[in-house]
Design a binder for these strands. Structure first.
Length: 518
DNA sequence: CTGGGGAAGGGGCCC
DNA sequence: AGGGCCCCTTCCCCA
């Protein structure tokens, strides 16, 4: 928040007496700038905000009480007005009605979250952690603080990026230096002060080249691991990838590490144009690298001390390539575990209003009834795909999509001949396996294709199986002892026709049985 | 160019 | 709250 915008907001929200002070200030500021030939004392803005923050701490001149889940926060209307579109709307109404102190009540977020928000308002520093980022973003969305939202989005994206990057590293490198690259994921995003005279970033008027602290820019932001790409690189890489993804769509060639970026454009697109709240370009968001003391609830696993959240998750996967339990789905849980309800309650809303309230997506205008649905919906923005198909490597955002994919592609559940589309039974048709793909062909089409000559005993070539409950992370076992609940219904050991191919050569496979496979 | 079909993906909702 | 099912839309490929 710049002094200029702050003063403008003050003038807007307060009466003539404040205006006179502002006029004096503006005059003083202009004179000062004149005397120093355009120079500006950059620390003044900082000191002014510091003073306001000090006043807040000492409960001096606080004229607004914010009640969050029973905890009372004191603040200055002027500051809130200037910082939040929500408070702007609220206070502009209440200020007309009364000059007494205003009280606002929230149940939309926790006191801890509001502390982060309020600290940002009064200091320009946003203390984000992997644990609080979603809730802070939701709160900022509710309070219409778009610059906070965009920083949160950046934080989440970088979180996912690091996670995926480290996953790549796991598959390609030894994990010996994973922890050495780690840095504390909790950090402070500063929307602070810069020496130049251009006004700092404001929620109502995003200003390119602002929101900076410590002189660190996004591009040289050393908060990332050295391998971390910046937002621009992601975008261009994503654009390059689009074609390859399209080409490989039916070939099962998508690589796990690619998938999150596949959807990232959606996030960027939407982030670039939230309705009524233009977000600043990500490359213009400058992030402070100073690291605060560890935040509550932000803990790293053993051996991953000081490691980013995503790294910590990856590290766990490293230690246990087939982790039991829910590590993959719990990754999403960790990401969204703190999802607040968006049931913002303001003042005297009626009970039936509350009943009609829904969970609103902070990225788009989509509203859902259930928190779980919002959690699921958010993955389409973040691009997170925690459910990999271990048969072909394709990743999915939802388990049911993965199941559907597996049944369709890797099991031959449909009793329909892939070639002639006729209904086939165990007697009239057979299952053909081609790489990791399975489908059915009727006996006639089999004869035409001439691939029934390659009969392989199922005892030697066990079918792909969907994992059982309780072992969700070790999906896709190739013929292990226990059959899963999802049986390949008609996979009699005598009627499975398998074309023996190397799974890694799906592309070549396409040519082999081209009439049936796209 | 167009229509059909397969696969993916998103939302609603039930269990 | 998560899993799973159903329905729908979109995208892509092919005839």
């Amino acid at each position: 928040m710049s002094i200029k915008s702050c003063l403008e907001s003050l003038a807007e929200s307060q009466g003539a007496e404040v205006k006179s002070v502002i006029i004096f200030f503006v005059f003083f500021r202009a004179t000062f700038r004149f005397l120093f030939s355009g120079m500006e004392i950059s620390s003044h803005q900082f000191h002014l905000l510091q003073q306001l923050n000090e006043q807040r701490r000492q409960d001096l001149f606080c004229d607004c009480n914010i009640l969050v889940e029973g905890k009372v926060f004191k603040a200055h209307r002027n500051v809130l007005f200037a910082s939040s579109g929500y408070f702007k709307m609220l206070l502009s109404q209440s200020s007309k009605e009364t000059s007494q102190s205003t009280t606002a009540t929230f149940q939309a977020f926790s006191p801890d979250t509001f502390t982060v928000i309020l600290d940002f308002v009064y200091s320009g520093k946003l203390s984000l952690t992997g644990q609080n980022v979603i809730e802070v973003m939701s709160a900022a969305s509710y309070l219409q603080m778009t610059d906070v939202i965009s920083v949160c989005k950046t934080f989440i994206k970088s979180s996912l990026d690091i996670s995926e990057k480290e996953k790549d590293r796991y598959f390609s490198l030894s994990d010996k230096d994973v922890s050495s690259n780690g840095v504390d994921r909790s950090c402070v995003y500063g929307g602070g002060w810069r020496a130049e005279s251009s006004p700092p970033h404001s929620h109502s008027s995003p200003d390119p080249g602002t929101c900076m602290m410590g002189g660190n820019t996004w591009s040289n932001f050393n908060y990332y691991p050295a391998s971390q790409r910046n937002a621009q690189q992601q975008l261009s890489k994503h654009e390059q990838r689009q074609d390859s993804v399209k080409k490989s769509r039916h070939l099962g060639l998508q690589q796990p590490s690619d998938i999150p970026h596949y959807k990232s454009s959606k996030l960027e697109d939407r982030a670039a144009e939230p309705a009524g709240h233009p977000a600043p370009p990500e490359e213009q968001v400058h992030i402070d690298t100073e690291v605060e003391a560890p935040h509550v609830g932000y803990q790293y696993g053993q051996g991953s001390e000081g490691m980013p959240r995503g790294l910590a998750v990856s590290q766990q996967e490293h230690e246990s390539p087939r982790p039991s339990g829910k590590s993959k789905s719990s990754k999403a849980d960790e990401q969204y575990g703190n999802m607040p309800s968006i049931l913002g309650v303001m003042g005297n809303w009626a009970e039936d209003d509350l009943a009609r309230m829904r969970f609103k997506c902070p990225f788009c205008s989509h509203v859902v009834k259930r928190k779980a649905d919002l959690k699921r919906h958010l993955r389409c923005h973040t691009g997170e795909r925690p459910y990999p198909c271990e048969a072909c490597g394709k990743r999915f955002s939802r388990l049911d999509h993965l199941s559907s994919h597996f049944r369709t592609i890797h099991q031959a559940c449909k009793p329909i001949c892939r070639k002639c589309k006729r209904h086939v039974t165990e007697l009239t048709g057979q299952v053909v396996q081609e790489g990791t793909r399975r489908y059915r062909l009727c006996n006639e089409c089999l004869a035409e294709a001439g691939i029934d000559s390659i009969r392989i005993d199922l005892e030697a070539e066990a079918p792909l199986e969907f994992p059982q409950d309780g072992d969700k992370d070790s999906r896709w076992h190739y013929g292990e002892d226990n059959r899963s609940d999802v049986e390949i219904v008609e996979d009699g050991s005598t009627d499975l026709v398998i074309q023996q191919v190397d799974d890694s050569e799906d592309e070549a496979d396409e040519k082999d049985v081209k009439p049936n496979i796209r």
